[in-house]
């Protein structure tokens, strides 16, 4: 009865459950969390928008100096392709969990708003 042994061992050890909201959660270093942008580096080229597989990014471009980079977290697949495609290393995944929302349609994050001057 080796299952008996396994059961007794399990009983003697502490449970394996992660008590997340009431206890700490270990997030690995490479975890792909919320999208963040380094506004200094971003030039509004649109490479990330072209390669995004989930239409989670949008670039509204009036001119070279006047553009908005918009992120839709509810559409985003958190695949990391934008981070890969960006030639200047501006857009990236942070390590933070993405908080849920009740209204996914209205969930719009303006990553960079450059108005011409």
């Amino acid at each position: 009865m080796s299952i008996l042994k396994a059961v007794i061992n399990a009983f003697r050890k502490t449970p394996d459950t992660v008590k997340y909201p009431y206890g700490p959660l270990v997030i690995p270093k490479g975890f792909r969390g919320a999208i963040v942008i380094d506004t200094e580096k971003c030039s509004g080229c649109g490479l990330c928008v072209r390669d995004c597989p989930a239409a989670g990014l949008e670039l509204i471009k009036e001119s070279r100096q006047d553009y908005q980079l918009i992120h839709y977290p509810a559409r985003c697949a958190y695949c990391g392709q934008c981070e890969d495609s960006c030639a200047r290393g501006a857009i990236s995944h942070s390590n933070d969990l993405v908080e849920p929302t009740y209204d996914s349609d209205e969930w719009v994050v303006v990553l960079k708003h450059q108005s011409g001057d």
Partner: peptide
């Protein structure tokens, strides 16, 4: 049962 199955219960 939970403790036998490594859960909290």
């Amino acid at each position: 049962l939970a403790r036998f199955q490594r859960r909290v219960g």
